[in-house]
Write a protein that binds this DNA or RNA. Structure first.
Lengths: 356, 356
DNA sequence: TTGTAAGCGTTATCAC
DNA sequence: GTGATAACGCTTACAA
């Protein structure tokens, strides 16, 4: 039956009604528009028989709504982002929305470029899941795109005038470092993320704050990383050469933490006996390392869902808003008390701060 | 400057030329269409100043090309698929194509539905990465969609009249089972994938063939699985209750293999000392298990790239084709000779077959 | 080298 | 309830 493109004109002809009637029947909102049952039936029959499918581009052009949203991420192959996307997809597809994705590899230029292209599609909404890249050209693009009426929602802290799903990066980092302190660790290294990424910076701030609260600011040790598995692997030799009594590593994300685990195994350092390791994010792989990784759980799918729901809300006329998702600790096998015979006691004051 | 929607009409007005001239300048193909440098400059200046961005929906409507392709996967949060998508994206974005994704969770209905929606977009191409689901409604949708002129490329074996990127599932499985046989294993369990999935069935066929070639068909042990991590975890108690001297497990995909590793750890069975484990796919996580997972490497990104390149080729007029990607073995730490004091020797004939 | 005008497939605004 | 008809923003013959 259906050969080539079938348009409403064909349906109109086949069912003996006008174009507008066909359009009305197909518009969906049954209650709103009055149509005789007979007409309706005939149109639907023709649609079925000819295998008609509406041309979304045409619909978009005239209605201004494309039923599509775009998601910008650093890398879709990173489980952190693919989990978020899955959450987005789940709520999008329930409303028959299509999802466009774009990996920008943390390149501001590509981010701006992608943003512009997606907006000119035009998509109805754009979710910036790429995580707070602080770059001027990106913010310029965002502002310019906002004027066209697209809804934009950012995930993680942004200096942008858009709705935000805020992840408690700083607080989560503070909590997990406190967990290490509670276990008795005093020399905790921090493996940092890429510069100019608010997500990474906030986690680092949480680390520093936890140490400061415990009066241990002088014990800070920050090793530069970039969120990649390899950064984790390579950090180990660097760390071991430091000639400092490090007993725990806090990697700014799970991928690096997993790299650390591998690096430590290679170096013959037992985890958690000789070294505790923690990450951030709780990507699925964190459960299957050996030992399983202690980390900060971000409800990644939920984050995606919230972002998408916020897009829909704004599309329905609501104003922008800042929501936040709570993180929690997933205490697993990669952390244990440090290997010291006589653990340094905390001063009373410090204990109070840490436990609060 | 740029407020609301800027159209070529605005550019035309601002630069004092006609709509068509603006369109020509913007069409890209500089060499093909003659335009005076002056005009060109003025148009471009106006574009820049007004912040003009072409409306892709309008362009799609008239040209029939949307510069977008769709990818159907089972689950975008599964690294197997997100790696493939990344490969697709890499070649798509180089040509400024947008990528739509849809997770169908192996549900034929959603697969068909998604396919139809994506096609009616209309996207220029559709990549069926979902991996050979054998279902009638899906094939019907594919045939109907093909008539509209979209290019479809399938990944993995399909009974569909479309181009295919074939993954050597059967051969890869045969190879890795042979690796286990070479190590001395004779009782190798197979943890299967979902039914009706050619990918899973082909791997199972490879397992059976390798055993048959070694004259060990009577040692077959197939445990039902579904490609999920949990299936791997849960298979372990089932396996241990079998009261059979199993020394190796071949899981039909890496996720299950990783689940097996975790299950074995829980059960206190040392890998590879007491049990060897292998998977299929070589997703990134396979390198970071402890011990690292021996598995069959599928060049996942390359698969994605090839699929996308094939789409472009067909869009350029070439005919459909069947390509295949070679798999290879990644021998890592999860395999070792079986824990038997006196390994059964292979018969000469068998050795020959196995080594060939 | 540039302009005019006819669509592309829908929806939306009027009438009837 | 239903039918013309004018957009939507762009490309592309066909003229000039």
């Amino acid at each position: 039956m259906s050969r080539g493109k079938v348009t409403i004109a064909d349906i109109a002809k086949a069912s003996g009604v006008s174009l507008s009637t066909v359009s009305r029947v197909l518009s969906g909102r049954e209650g709103t528009i009055p149509i005789s049952a007979t007409t309706r039936g005939r149109v639907l029959a023709a649609v079925d028989e000819l295998g008609y499918r509406p041309n979304l581009a045409a619909r978009t052009l005239v209605s201004g709504r494309s039923q599509a949203i775009a998601v910008l991420v650093h890398d879709i192959a990173d489980p952190y982002f693919s989990e978020i996307i899955r959450g987005i997809e789940d709520v999008a597809s329930a409303r028959k929305y299509m999802v466009l994705v774009s990996s920008t590899d943390r390149d501001p230029e590509r981010e701006a470029e992608s943003l512009l292209r997606m907006a000119s599609f035009p998509t109805d909404g754009i979710i910036l899941a790429a995580g707070g890249l602080e770059d001027e050209s990106v913010s310029r693009s965002v502002s310019s795109v906002l004027k066209t009426g697209v809804v934009i929602v950012g995930i993680a802290r942004h200096a942008l005038p858009v709705s935000t799903i805020d992840i408690g990066n700083r607080e989560g980092a503070r909590q997990i470092v406190t967990h290490l302190l509670d276990l008795g660790h005093r020399d905790i290294a921090f493996l940092s993320g890429p510069e100019h990424l608010t997500t990474a910076n906030d986690r680092q701030a949480g680390y520093r704050q936890a140490l400061a609260d415990a009066g241990l600011s002088d014990r800070e040790l920050i090793i530069p990383g970039d969120f990649s598995r390899e950064a984790g692997v390579n950090a180990i030799p660097v760390l071991l050469e430091q000639n400092r009594p490090i007993t725990a590593i806090f990697a700014a994300n799970d991928k690096m933490a997993i790299g650390c685990l591998t690096g430590l195994r290679t170096a013959g350092v037992a985890v958690p006996d000789r070294m505790s390791v923690v990450g951030f994010g709780d990507i699925p792989a964190a459960q299957d390392t050996n030992p399983p990784l202690t980390t900060v759980t971000i409800p990644l799918r939920e984050v995606g869902r919230m972002a998408m729901e916020q897009v829909f809300r704004e599309l329905a006329g609501e104003t922008s808003a800042s929501l936040s998702v709570p993180t929690s600790l997933a205490i697993r096998g990669s952390t244990a008390p440090p290997f010291t015979l006589a653990p340094e006691p905390l001063t009373p004051k410090t204990v109070k701060t840490v436990r609060k």
